[in-house]
Measured scan of single mutants.
Amino acid sequence: EPLWIRPDAPSRCTWQLGRPASESPHHHTAPAKSPKILPDILKKIGDTPMVRINKIGKKFGLKCELLAKCEFFNAGGSVKDRISLRMIEDAERDGTLKPGDTIIEPTSGNTGIGLALAAAVRGYRCIIVMPEKMSSEKVDVLRALGAEIVRTPTNARFDSPESHVGVAWRLKNEIPNSHILDQYRNASNPLAHYDTTADEILQQCDGKLDMLVASVGTGGTITGIARKLKEKCPGCRIIGVDPEGSILAEPEELNQTEQTTYEVEGIGYDFIPTVLDRTVVDKWFKSNDEEAFTFARMLIAQEGLLCGGSAGSTVAVAVKAAQELQEGQRCVVILPDSVRNYMTKFLSDRWMLQKGFLKEEDLTEKKPWWWHLRVQELGLSAPLTVLPTITCGHTIEILREKGFDQAPVVDEAGVILGMVTLGNMLSSLLAGKVQPSDQVGKVIYKQFKQIRLTDTLGRLSHILEMDHFALVVHEQIQYHSTGKSSQRQMVFGVVTAIDLLNFVAAQERDQK
């Protein structure tokens, strides 16, 4: 057995438009009618409502009807409940999964919650491996369901041993009777949507819809739904939504950006999952974080739909894509998950301010006199920076000697690579993860907040409520011999709460 199987392995699926269902090699399930009293909570997966979006479509000038398939009504709160249950049931049916076995899954959280929910009911041990950027709410729900959680670096490539995929496979090879159901490759993922989600949409719309818009992560949702719609409703256009920084969209030119990270969760990847059939997507749109969270908040405030950030991405694209539809036509959007997962993220004004998705003037509360002053007023001194090749031991000596707790790590040209902190280095040394002679590049981390000289002290204040420091950066445009230009970030300084307090105190003292 291989040590790991690539999540982007070539698909062996034989589905073709027009091929009889009787030739399918898979076990198919028909939607079942729910009894009045459910035998367990797993029976509350599927049969989610279709809700008309009344205000947002009109606000953006849509002539067509805009409908939302509300997947956050599933038992675990997301569309991923469907595939989690289906993968477990299919693994039980073919004898792969037996009582007492362990389920391991690399996930952005929602599939993990679905699997942990099913594992709690069915009696399996469950280990979820997820990147650090995923919300604390997801972690809390997983723990409450009895799952064990392993976190991995957000910026690790999918084929790196440190990625959530790599760590999951390492655990599988170490733990007896453990299984990775593997949402990236498992046919049960798109089949769950082909058999149930798509049929529900067709039934709820009486077979009449002209466009379907869905955000894409593993691709199982859009693949399964689109294949069924292509068979039953061939005139329906399928629109895929991919965040900026991901590479799922086609044509490839759409993916060209210097951005590699994004805040919206559960969609987009740096590889093409095996289950994603991009041939059934008629057109791709890219979405960005700001519009995703703005539209998610709009869905909550104006439509009462308590959905997550990827739902915002989907609707932001839908109001663009559906401009081509006329009166009497219908566009369906998939709202994948609930706001429950993001209470401390985009639902929080403070978080939105820190990330730059909300401006101070958007909030009406009274601010102190210094709130709208610029960061450049602080008069920061030149920063202490270190090269990635310097040793951890030497870096600790320098920081202690100069009285700093942290320093930016830059390359020879001064471009920011990340940050090192005294606390992080000492804990890594004590844990045996690094040696004093190791290069400081081994303990770089990139989960820090950046701020510009033109940003306000109010925004800085919000950042420092949650973080010990902020890195002050400025952009530099560099022209190359080819005539092309590129933008790079340079370090201007490091600012802490002490710097802000000293500035405010000094100004008030001078005024007296």
Rank of each mutant, 00 (worst) to 15 (best):
I238F: 09
I239Y: 08
G240F: 03
V241W: 01
P243W: 01
P243K: 05
E244F: 05
G245I: 00
S246C: 00
S246M: 01
L248P: 01
E250N: 15
P251C: 07
L254C: 03
N255D: 03
Q256P: 04
Q256H: 13
T257A: 13
E258L: 11
E258S: 10
Q259A: 01
T260A: 06
T260F: 13
T260S: 15
T260Y: 15
Y262K: 05
E263H: 14
E263L: 10
E263D: 15
V264T: 07
V264W: 00
V264F: 02
E265S: 05
G266H: 00
I267E: 06
G268Y: 01
Y269A: 01
D270A: 02
D270L: 02
F271Q: 00
P273E: 07
P273M: 06
T274M: 07
T274P: 05
T274Y: 00
V275N: 04
V275E: 04
V275T: 03
V275H: 00
L276W: 02
D277T: 05
V280K: 09
V281R: 05
D282Y: 12
K283A: 13
K283P: 10
W284N: 00
W284K: 00
W284V: 00
F285W: 03
F285N: 07
F285E: 08
F285A: 13
K286S: 01
K286P: 01
D289I: 00
D289Q: 00
E290A: 07
E291K: 14
E291Y: 08
A292P: 03
F293W: 03
T294Y: 13
T294A: 12
F295Q: 12
A296W: 00
A296I: 03
R297L: 08
L299S: 07
L299M: 07
I300C: 07
A301E: 10
A301K: 04
Q302L: 08
E303I: 01
G304F: 01
G304C: 02
G304K: 02
L306S: 06
G308W: 00
S310D: 05
A311C: 06
S313L: 04
S313K: 06
V315W: 06
A316I: 11
A316W: 11
V317D: 07
A318C: 09
V319F: 13
V319E: 08
K320D: 03
K320G: 11
A322D: 05
A322L: 01
A322N: 05
A322Q: 01
Q323D: 11
Q323W: 13
E324F: 15
E324T: 10
Q326H: 12
Q326C: 11
Q326G: 12
E327R: 12
E327A: 11
E327H: 07
G328M: 07
R330F: 07
R330H: 14
R330C: 15
V333W: 01
V333H: 00
I334Q: 02
L335Q: 01
L335Y: 03
L335H: 00
D337R: 04
D337Y: 03
D337C: 03
S338M: 03
V339S: 06
V339K: 06
V339R: 06
V339L: 10
R340G: 05
T344N: 03
F346R: 04
L347Y: 08
L347A: 07
D349A: 07
D349E: 14
D349H: 08
D349L: 13
R350V: 07
W351R: 04
L353R: 08
L353E: 14
Q354S: 12
K355C: 05
K355F: 14
G356L: 06
G356D: 03
G356P: 04
G356W: 05
F357V: 04
K359C: 14
K359G: 06
E361W: 14
D362E: 13
D362G: 12
L363D: 15
E365F: 09
K366Q: 11
W369Q: 05
W370Q: 06
H372R: 04
H372K: 04
L373K: 07
R374L: 11
V375Y: 05
V375D: 06
V375C: 09
Q376F: 07
Q376C: 12
Q376A: 03
E377Y: 02
L378G: 04
L378A: 12
G379C: 11
L380A: 12
S381Q: 13
P383F: 08
L384V: 14
T385S: 15
T385G: 13
T385C: 10
L387N: 10
L387Y: 11
P388G: 14
I390N: 14
T391D: 03
T391I: 09
T391E: 11
T391M: 14
C392S: 07
C392F: 15
C392Q: 08
C392T: 15
G393T: 12
H394L: 04
H394T: 10
H394R: 14
I396P: 08
E397Q: 15
E397C: 07
I398W: 07
I398L: 15
I398F: 15
L399Q: 06
L399A: 12
L399S: 01
R400C: 15
E401M: 09
G403K: 09
F404A: 05
F404K: 02
D405G: 06
D405R: 09
D405M: 06
A407C: 15
V409T: 13
V410L: 14
D411R: 14
D411C: 15
D411P: 15
E412V: 12
E412N: 08
G414D: 10
V415E: 15
V415P: 02
I416N: 09
L417F: 15
L417V: 15
V420Q: 07
T421G: 02
T421R: 12
G423I: 03
G423S: 09
G423V: 11
N424R: 11
N424Q: 12
M425W: 09
L426F: 15
L430W: 09
A431G: 13
G432M: 05
G432T: 06
Q435D: 13
S437G: 13
Q439R: 10
V440G: 09
G441F: 14
G441K: 12
K442T: 13
V443W: 08
V443L: 09
I444D: 12
K446N: 15
Q447L: 14
Q447M: 12
F448N: 10
K449I: 06
K449D: 13
K449S: 08
I451L: 13
R452D: 09
L453M: 14
L453E: 10
L453T: 09
T454M: 14
D455I: 15
T456A: 15
L457C: 06
G458V: 10
G458N: 08
G458Q: 07
G458C: 07
R459A: 13
R459Q: 14
R459W: 11
S461K: 05
H462N: 08
L464W: 08
D467Y: 02
A470R: 08
L471F: 12
L471Q: 07
L471H: 07
V472K: 03
V472L: 14
V473A: 12
V473P: 07
V473C: 08
Q476P: 14
I477E: 08
I477F: 14
Y479M: 13
T482C: 10
G483K: 11
S485P: 14
S486R: 14
R488F: 15
R488V: 13
Q489F: 14
M490H: 14
M490E: 12
V491W: 13
F492V: 15
F492T: 12
G493D: 13
V495Y: 09
T496D: 05
T496F: 15
A497E: 03
A497I: 12
A497F: 01
I498K: 10
I498T: 12
D499V: 00
V504K: 12
Q507P: 14
Q507L: 12
R509D: 11
K512F: 08
K512H: 10
K512T: 12
